[in-house]
Design a protein around this nucleic acid. Sequence first.
DNA 1: ATGACCCGCGCAGCGGGA
Length: 259
Amino acid sequence: MKIATWNVNSIRKRAAQVQAWLTREQPDILLLQELKCEARDFPELDFASLGYRAEIVGQKAYNGVAALARIPFDLRERALPGLTPAGDGLPEARYLEIAAAGVVIGGLYAPNGNSGGIEGFRRKLRWLDALIAHGRALLAADTPLVLAGDFNICPDDDDLAPGALAPDDALVRPESRARYRSLLWLGMTDALRALTPEGPVYTFWDYQAGAFAADRGLRIDHVLLSPTLAERLTRAEVDRAARAAEQPSDHAPVSVTLA
DNA sequence: ATGACCCGCGCAGCGGGA
């Protein structure tokens, strides 16, 4: 079973690249983030023609998550349970959860946390706290669980190029890293780090100042596996070739293979 | 070489990304 995640930075801009990637990589499931469109504008047919069915949680201009799968699956959640929307209405399109082949898979796009001042950062932490609580509940029931997507956290100092971010950036703040550790302490395994214990394994490179050419990146896209799934982990990789394409997303796809 | 990104929105330039 091959599961992948990719922050595409607008699915309408990247549909052809996603099609090509599905054709080449043949994942069973691809989780997408930053669709930047409403569900009705998602180019569903581009992927149906390749045998992938889509579930979409969209929103105008911002956020947006989806799951594409070529194996049968059910939609379980269209939002992160237990998260109270910020005052003025609907929850942001940052989470969806499916079940496929006996595995529950949460596809997520955590808030960046650098905009909106201190309240914006607190909103990020509240969102992560809800993710931790939800993960804890699923694991308490021994649910085989994958949490994958753009966590907007560099877990450790190996996970960013030296000087790539200010020390007080929301992606490296101790409060953010503590939330990531809480997810690991629940019993989840960081798939990419499990198979590459040390050194840089970046998944994001800024568009600016030749960051990709200079390999000044960040590791912020993660795949976390519950214990029985971690035992089945055989591969975990970042597809840097996708980031090297013409007009790429600033994120590369991350994929894992479970025996 | 005194500059150097990319989205959506909507038609100028701004908010957000990370």
